[in-house]
Design a protein around this nucleic acid. Structure first.
Lengths: 187, 187
DNA sequence: GTGTTACGCTACGAGCCGTAGCGGAACGGC
DNA sequence: GCCGTTCCGCTACGGCTCGTAGCGTAACAC
């Protein structure tokens, strides 16, 4: 079912995707889809969410290398046509649907944020970042870094429409790591 | 016409917005809309584009203050319900429609990027940033900064779903300015 | 043997899309 | 005063999608 949804997303995109189509591809009655999911948005959330499971963050030895790695893998995910068209449409829908917003958060956003927390803890263990003084300040900084990384990649790939190639990834990583390094030693 | 489109966006959101609705609100026949715009997407692009004209960048005296200013005004624009639901949906559509992508670029993206170029030139005049050595490298850095700023704000407001309040703006500005400052003096 | 659950299939009213066809109003040239 | 052009409003239409209702059936539990 979710496979059929992703296939339909690749071929038709979000706007022209119909539940009748998905049902036909999956060899399933349209009724069954409506019995399991309340609508198009919820179905696509589940279909796309599994793609974010493949995001991992192996230890590459330094904060800069870890940031570069997560940026690269996230960009690779966004350059797949299914995720690109679906993610933006879902975010647009979630603007007017709090329930959908929660689904997206638990199914997609939290899975990415986990990587940031992981890389951050690793950098602290290496001594590249100072340990947490205040836990709420630490959470705020993690959220900030997450928004910067994910936002920049999304904007580069989907809005500016240019690839996140090696040159861009290294430049962005350098900027972010330099900012973190310059900001935290004194404070 | 565009006023009616924005009003319908506020009330219905992107997905439930119909051209018949817009026509009724504008006191105009549905045919007229189709005579002027090829479809829903193009109409909404024009309706939203004018909102980006109010973005300006007064000289606030320092690079940090200028960045904070543009972040604040951009965030205020994104927190309006019309722009939030429309922008993301348009980006989603543009992944499958190169023509729409160009419309968005000229009508929305370029208007924002202008601010970045302006602030950058101003910071160079103040001596806060080094002058351009290589023009293509300068353009690349400007694009990078633009993606970081716009992407972070969009992600914060629309994906994370939390407001870009003063605390966040100052933290983000500090991170970005520190990164720019730490990166460029040696190079 | 029976209740429960889940599914497939058909059919339906409702709504929107995008277009065609027709008639009317404004404007300009002469 | 006459006529061509252009723009608009209005109605109507075929086609498509939505989401639901109704009915029959297969698997499973006990």
């Amino acid at each position: 079912m979710l496979d059929a949804t992703r296939a339909a997303l690749v071929e038709l995109g979000w706007s022209k995707l119909t539940l009748g189509d998905v049902a036909a591809r999956a060899g399933v009655a349209k009724t069954t889809l409506y019995r399991r999911w309340p609508g198009k948005s919820a179905l696509v959330v589940d279909a796309v969410a599994v793609l974010f499971d493949e995001l991992e963050l192996p230890d590459r030895g330094s904060l800069a290398a870890d940031v570069g790695g997560v940026v690269r893998s996230f960009a690779a995910l966004l350059e797949r046509p299914e995720t690109a068209t679906a993610l933006m449409a879902l975010v647009a829908e979630s603007t007017r649907d709090p329930g959908l917003r929660d689904r997206i958060r638990t199914a997609v956003v939290d899975r990415q944020k986990r990587l940031v927390l992981e890389g951050r803890a690793r950098a602290q263990a290496r001594g590249e970042l100072p340990p947490d003084a205040d836990p709420v300040a630490a959470a705020r900084q993690a959220d900030l870094v997450f928004d910067v990384i994910a936002g920049a990649v999304v904007h580069r790939v989907l809005v500016s429409g240019e690839p996140a190639d090696d040159a861009w990834v290294t430049a962005f990583t350098a900027l972010l790591v330099a900012g973190l390094g310059a900001l935290t030693p004194p404070g």
